[in-house]
Amino acid sequence: MTEVRPRIRLPRSASAGDSIVVKTLINHDMESGQRRNSAGETIPRQIINRFTCEFGGVMVIDAALEPAISANPYLEFEAVVPASGEFVFTWYDDNGEVYTATEAFEVS
């Protein structure tokens, strides 16, 4: 598999206390465990099974994901930004790997 690279999109600006739309995407096959290869063997499941987002140490969303989430899982949600701080995004892979991304956000 190619290198896993998370992508985050945040609005350019927001005022303190605003609710902002956060868009995240990570490249990942999300191998469902339902497919078979050309020899008829089941391809083992390997998905991102959990995603979390925190802002300034406060939990925004904690998602338990199943194989029915499409490849390159995309998640869009809203977060409150009471003050400037840092977003921490974490993706948990079935294979035990944990991918994180951080993004500083300044409020006006």
């Binding site: 925190e54 969303i61 904690d62 989430i69 998640l75 869009e76 809203e78």
Partner: peptide
Amino acid sequence: FTFGPGAGASMVATR
């Protein structure tokens, strides 16, 4: 999807 105290709305979009 579990929304924490930092959630701005109880909404989520995905594919």
